Simulated scan of single mutants.
Amino acid sequence: MGPKRQPTLDEVAARAGVSRSAASRVINNARHVSQAKRDAVERAVAELGFVPNPTARALATQQVGAVVLALSHHDPAQFTDPFFAQIILGVNAELEKTDLELLLVLANTTQGQARLQRILKSRRADGVMLMALRGDDPLAALADRHDVPVVFGGRPLHAEPRWYVDADNRGGSRLATEHLIGLGRRHIAVITGHMDTDAGASRHRGYLDAMAVAGLSPSRVEHGDFTESSGAAAMTRLLAAYPEVDAVVAGSDAMAAGALRALKAHGRSVPGDIAVVGFDDLLTALHTDPQLTTVHQPIHGLGREMAKMLLSLIAGEEPHPLVLPTRLVRRASA
């Protein structure tokens, strides 16, 4: 009799019910593989008598054990914004299942972008998550210049990356506008966020969709930057230009809170005179007066799914882009 045939890696993966790349990572003692997959592969290895190749083990373990969450924004204070705080918590919740460390990088300046480029060029990170890209941000081309997995949090405005996690911004804004139309409001204004972001542009399109179906004029538009102060300023301009306004769709809870403050200052009642709907469903929505009707997007879930997608890429798998659903949360403001 000749020597016993060695089982292949494909046979181990099939026995364990995992991808070939996941089986390879477990066998070669690489990081960031779920415990369930690790257990399944180890059972298959024992049952089949598989012996790993030492060279393959050396290649598979060339991981540095860190991933980057990079924020491209002109205001460093955005890292303390409740939205980004929830994103970070979601990312961290998923990474806690692994040995990976999380590096936070502000890539809003030339120096910050150069620092991120150095991290990637020297392979000091196994993957990157990019947030808050605006316009033709050079970071959008990051995936094409480095052999490092890149996951986008929200789609860039002028690109369609292979891997991203986003919320249904357009559908959520359409829901908000349809809700106001259903309440009998006909002079509905919109306060947009940054129009050089996909979130800002998509939420405006959702408003336009609903207004078009209802045959209503979508001309009452003012622009903000997702902050409370910009919402207050935009609401003041709307009142001056369109005194007949009876409802407002704001592109974020922060801007909606600013709009409520401006309406109170001008003696308008909410929702009696003007109904207001926000977008995000942050804690802010519970602390406004009145409490804010808003569109809920799963912000914590966005962070978790970004990290999950990146871990899948690092493990050699091929995940699909993901758009998470949004829903309307009714409270007292509309």
Results as ranks from 00 to 15, higher is better:
P76N: 07
D136G: 15
V45F: 09
R15K: 09
V105C: 13
V26P: 03
A56I: 14
A85G: 14
V128T: 04
A77L: 12
D126Y: 06
I27F: 06
L69H: 00
N108P: 05
R118S: 06
A93M: 06
F79C: 08
A16L: 03
E96A: 04
E94Q: 11
E96Y: 00
A14P: 00
V64D: 02
A132I: 00
A114E: 13
E11K: 15
F79Y: 08
A70E: 00
A93W: 00
A70R: 00
L130C: 08
L120F: 03
G90H: 02
G65E: 06
A114S: 09
G65K: 14
L100V: 12
R20S: 03
R25W: 04
A70G: 04
V64Q: 07
E96V: 00
F50Y: 15
V41H: 13
I87N: 02
A46Q: 12
L130R: 02
E94Y: 00
E96N: 04
N28V: 06
A13W: 03
I87R: 02
R134P: 05
R25C: 12
R124E: 07
A36H: 15
S21Q: 08
K97N: 07
Q86Y: 09
P54F: 11
E94S: 04
D137P: 09
D81W: 07
L48V: 03
L130P: 00
L71Y: 00
A22N: 03
V26A: 03
L9F: 12
E94K: 01
Q63E: 11
D81M: 05
E96R: 04
A44V: 04
G112R: 05
L71E: 00
L100N: 03
A44P: 04
S34M: 04
A36L: 09
A46K: 05
I88F: 06
A77F: 11
V45L: 13
R20F: 12
I27T: 03
G65I: 11
T109N: 10
G49V: 10
A30N: 02
A56H: 11
L59A: 12
R15T: 10
Q63G: 15
V105D: 06
L71I: 10
N28Y: 07
L104Y: 08
A70V: 00
R25D: 01
L100E: 02
T55D: 07
R20G: 01
A70T: 00
L100A: 13
I119H: 02
R38A: 13
D75H: 15
A114F: 07
A66Y: 05
V26H: 02
F83R: 03
D75A: 13
A107V: 05
V51C: 03
V91T: 06
K37C: 12
A36E: 15
V68F: 05
R43L: 14
V18E: 01
G49I: 10
A77K: 11
A66C: 08
K97M: 05
A30F: 11
G127I: 06
V64L: 11
A46E: 07
A56D: 13
R20T: 13
V26M: 10
R20D: 01
L103F: 15
T61Y: 12
V105S: 13
E11H: 14
A56P: 14
Q35F: 02
P76C: 08
L89S: 12
V64G: 05
A44E: 02
